[in-house]
């Protein structure tokens, strides 16, 4: 399978940073839905409108398929993993962990598994060994995030 080259292009970093900004708006929009309806509803609606929006994008943009061969069926299950995430966090939000604990532990799980996946090149994605620089960046960004999560919104 042909893979794109791993890069350290500043534009890619900027794009990922901007993508994180989108997440803030999703949390605001979907969180507001959850304040009025059920947590199921707050996840069901964006999946429904998202499916329609993605279909429209596909019809308008008509992106080229990277490969003619059909990929294995399991690659279509990413959405299940995402939906289970919502259900898990709705359980932990109402526990003693509350929002800050849920986010902080979620960041930890996400980073550890991402590093593991990079080192092994899981799921046919390119392998990428972390360097000392990556761990310094990780420590700084996670430290800053934890300060914002636990101290940023209290007066």
């Amino acid at each position: 399978m042909s893979q794109p080259e791993l890069s350290n292009h500043p534009l890619h970093f900027a794009a990922a940073f901007g993508t994180g900004g989108l997440l803030s708006f999703m949390v605001l929009f979907n969180g507001t839905l959850a304040a009025y309806g059920s947590l199921f509803f707050a996840s069901w609606v964006p999946h429904l409108t998202g499916s329609v929006a993605a279909l429209l994008f596909l019809l308008v943009l008509r992106p080229k398929r990277a490969q003619a061969a059909r990929p294995p069926l399991w690659v279509y299950l990413g959405g299940v993993s995402g939906a289970v995430t919502v259900m898990l966090t709705s359980a932990t939000l109402n526990s003693a962990l509350a929002l800050s604990g849920t986010i902080a532990l979620g960041l930890a799980g996400q980073m550890v598994f991402s590093l593991f996946a990079d080192m092994r090149g899981l799921f046919g994605l390119p392998q990428r060994m972390p360097m000392w620089r990556d761990f310094v960046a990780l420590a700084l960004i996670i430290a800053g995030s934890l300060i914002l999560i636990f101290f940023g919104s209290s007066t």
């Binding site: 990277a66 979620g106 799980g109 598994f113």
Partner: peptide, 29 residues
Amino acid sequence: AILAGVLVSLSRQINGRLALSTSAMESSF
């Protein structure tokens, strides 16, 4: 809560693998 974080990453990897075969927008669909 930790598992939820793992699943966020897992989901992105699986979608990333689908995008390698198709396109990023088809993967999102």
